[in-house]
Amino acid sequence: MYELKEKEMIFVFTGPNGAGRRTVADMSGSTLGVKQVISYTTRPPRANEVDGQDYHFLKPAQFFQAQQNGEFLEISEIDGNLYGVKSRDIEERFRSKGSIYLILNRYGAQKLKELYGDHVVRIFIYADRRLVEQRFREKGYNEEQIAGFMSHFDEEMAYKDECEHAFENIDLAHTVFDLTKTLDKYLERNLLDLD
C-alpha cells in the first residue's frame, strides 16, 4: 500500500446514483487540478459511459484474475457486479500529482477511510429523491431501470452523516463553487479567492 506524504489528500465523492456526484467531482477536480483515479467494474457500461473515463470495464474473468493477483485495494459488490480500486493506480497518480479524487459507493469510501485515515476526505453529494428520479427520466431511463437505481437510495443516504462534508446538489454551479472553496482549504494552495 502506498504511504501518503503529509499534504497528499484523497477526496472521495460518494452519494446516491443520480445526485450528480460524477459531474460535481469532475468539475471540482478540473478547477483545482486534482486528478481522478478511475475504478474498475464487471458491470456493462450504461448509455453515455466511456471505458477508461467513467470506469475501467472488465469481464468478470479479468476482474477475478486481477483480484487473485492482489491488485485491488478495495472491492465491493452491488447487484451482482464487482467494483474495485487498484493500488497501483493510486500510487501512479500520487507520483505525478499531490492529491487525487475518486468516485465510489459508500463501501469503497469507507474502506479508503479505514486505510488512509485523515488523508481521506469523503464528500457526500445528494439530491432529493424526486429530483434524482426526474434526472434519470431526463436521461432516458425507463421506470424499471430507475427503480433499480433507486433501490439503493436510502442505503446510500444513510452514509451522509459519516462523511466529512455533504453538499445538496440542486444547482450544479453553486454546488461546485461551494465545494471548490472547501477542497481548496485542504489543499492549502490559496488559489481561490472566491469570497
Rank of each mutant, 00 (worst) to 15 (best):
K97R: 05
V12L: 02
Y116A: 05
L172F: 13
E188K: 14
F124N: 03
G98I: 01
K160G: 01
H174P: 02
K97F: 08
P45Q: 12
L187E: 01
K59D: 07
G15M: 07
P44V: 09
E188L: 05
E164V: 11
H152S: 14
K7Y: 08
V12C: 12
E3H: 11
S39H: 07
T42V: 05
F136P: 02
G52F: 11
C163W: 01
Y186N: 06
R122V: 11
F136N: 10
L194D: 06
D51H: 15
S99N: 05
G148L: 13
I10N: 00
D51T: 09
K5H: 08
H152E: 12
F149Y: 10
Y107M: 08
D118V: 13
I146N: 03
Y101S: 02
A173F: 10
G98Q: 01
T42E: 04
Y40R: 00
S87F: 06
K181T: 08
D184C: 02
F64N: 10
N81G: 09
N81S: 14
V12Q: 00
T180F: 07
L183N: 01
R88T: 06
L73T: 04
E3Q: 14
G20W: 03
N69Y: 07
G98P: 00
E133C: 07
M157K: 04
L187F: 07
P16D: 02
T31Q: 06
Y141M: 09
N81L: 09
G148S: 15
N17W: 01
R21F: 07
Q134Y: 13
E168W: 03
N169E: 13
K185I: 14
R137P: 06
M157Q: 06
V50E: 15
F124K: 01
L73N: 00
F167T: 05
R22Q: 04
K160Q: 12
S99E: 01
G140I: 10
Y107H: 11
E133Q: 12
N48L: 11
H119E: 13
V85N: 00
K160Y: 03
I38R: 04
S76M: 05
A47R: 14
K185W: 08
N190S: 15
L112Y: 09
Y186S: 06
D128G: 03
K97W: 06
F149C: 07
E71D: 15
C163Q: 03
S87K: 08
A147W: 11
L102D: 01
V85R: 00
I170Q: 15
N105R: 09
A127V: 02
D89I: 01
V50D: 07
T23I: 15
G80Q: 11
Y83K: 07
Q134E: 15
T31H: 07
Q145S: 11
K5C: 00
